[in-house]
């Protein structure tokens, strides 16, 4: 690819730093408002995952006289695992959205949405079954 016929008018963009240039290569700087909006969405996901993490730690102590130990531990691990997956998934999604915006490509579908919905429904079903059959 040559650029010789279309000489760039703008001066060379300042360096974005090593990590940014490796993880978000190519493309053009998107509208700064979109970059900030993407960051806020990432933070909303992180807060969701923090709630799940706190719930996972608390469920063991809260429910010690309600659930049998395996159910209690199982639910705690499911919540903690979900919190972990969501926070890692939020970072991956942030990167993918940022890449799409740089390349003016359509935004990727959020895989963490069905993950959260599915796991939430599963946890609710486990608790429901346990409470009904206890």
């Amino acid at each position: 690819m040559t650029n010789s016929e279309r000489a760039p008018r703008k001066p060379a963009p300042p360096s974005r730093g090593k990590i940014a240039e490796r993880l978000l290569p190519g493309g053009e700087e998107p509208d700064p408002r979109f970059t900030l909006a993407n960051e806020r969405t990432f933070l909303a996901w992180i807060r969701t995952s923090l709630a799940l993490l706190a719930g996972g730690i608390a469920i063991e102590a809260f429910t010690s006289d309600l659930f049998l130990e395996p159910v209690r531990k199982g639910l705690a691990v499911v919540l903690l695992l979900l919190g972990m997956l969501l926070s890692a998934g939020a970072a991956v999604r942030w990167l993918r959205v940022e890449r799409s915006m740089r390349n003016k490509a359509p935004l990727p579908l959020p895989l963490i949405v069905p993950l959260l919905a599915g796991a939430g429904a599963l946890a609710a079903a486990v608790v429901l079954v346990f409470i009904l059959w206890r």
């Binding site: 700087e29 960051e39 993490l53």
Partner: peptide, 25 residues
């Protein structure tokens, strides 16, 4: 009209949350 994506802050925050999950398990 140009904001550099804050890769450092985002990755550190996600890393901390993942660590919390792992330690919690």
């Amino acid at each position: 009209e140009r904001v550099d994506a804050d890769v450092r802050s985002v990755l550190w925050t996600a890393f901390a949350a993942v660590m919390l999950g792992g330690l919690g398990i």
